[in-house]
Design a protein around this nucleic acid. Sequence first.
DNA 1: TGTCGACCATGACAGTTGTCATCGGATCGG
DNA 2: CCGATCCGATGACAACTGTCATGGTCGACA
Lengths: 201, 201
Amino acid sequence: MIRLLLADDQALVRGALSALLGLEPDFEVVAEVASGTDVVPAVLEHRPDVALLDVEMPGLDGISAAAEVRRVAPATRVLIVTTFGRPGFLRRAMQSGADGFVVKDTPAAQLADAVRRVHQGLRVVDPALAMDSLTIGDSPLTERETDVLRAATDGAAVAVIAGRVHLSPGTVRNHLSSAIGKTGAANRSEAVRIATSHGWL
Amino acid sequence: MIRLLLADDQALVRGALSALLGLEPDFEVVAEVASGTDVVPAVLEHRPDVALLDVEMPGLDGISAAAEVRRVAPATRVLIVTTFGRPGFLRRAMQSGADGFVVKDTPAAQLADAVRRVHQGLRVVDPALAMDSLTIGDSPLTERETDVLRAATDGAAVAVIAGRVHLSPGTVRNHLSSAIGKTGAANRSEAVRIATSHGWL
DNA sequence: TGTCGACCATGACAGTTGTCATCGGATCGG
DNA sequence: CCGATCCGATGACAACTGTCATGGTCGACA
């Protein structure tokens, strides 16, 4: 019997996944949580064999939660299940100690297989996504450039961003200019778009 | 027996919902499709009692698909199931002839009830979302302002937008300025953000 | 018929943004 | 120790953006 924990902020999806996996005779869903911060307590209480974590969650995101699970309960395997197949997500997930990475585009029939493989100690990764991760590579942005670009995601003006990251407006413009250059964008918002789609933010 | 059609571009979610609803003794999932353009043919072939449509789909979006279903198969009830509870989505969905509107945050246990109510001819709407829809109101943007703002979502420069909508750069700037004023934004990207979150694009 | 609003366009203006050169300090590896 | 890199900052310049005034066309409506 493989004991499962599900973490997804959308209750409907969480319940539906529970129903789907509950159909398998060798699976048992022992816990369901809606936020990243609830993952570790639930893991400690129920000691699941495999934790299925969504990346997009309030509080702690799935990747950070994976690292925490790895730390407090090494016996629990972690399978990341996410909407967006961003190369940077895959990279960070694997570095955080996740055992598998599945996008929500994959056929439902393959999820159970992925869970079983992860449970057996194998790594599960979408081959196409792994290729993307290799071709796109790691983020070229420095730490501060990333900070500034993240503070610019909502289209705020330079002065506002400067206040958020506690920097001079001129410095902010320099970092933005550098980020625009590195992403190959023509524009601040385009740079944000590119960096986000690569999972660099 | 209530015959169901499921439309969602994410295979995993689609399959999971199918499993969830398949647990109900009075439900039968007769068709699953992954794109909006596949909805009408599937409805004509399988004649479901209720169609569950996601809004975010490639090809035709769920709301437009709802209108098509209404046209070609009035006996089929339409329940919109979406990730984002944008007030504008709800408004447009109801105007397109949808019978219900459910966000993916709602508990899984309530979905079956929603389906049954819609099947009985009742309307199903999240009360909180209905309130938002009333307080936020309809889009204040004119048709052309909407076009221009939609062409500006990716952060393109005025010249590029002008090319896309076949207008003079000056005119584009005027429409943008007007849209910025109406949305109460300080900024083009903020205007895009606000309009999107309200479902005006 | 006159009025109104949406639409397209131009020109002018101030403010913002992106780029570049340049400086100083900190840190790290060879 | 030296070079490389990141960090923060400033000033200057060109380009872009947001706003406003103005003017014209068109269709809806009283």
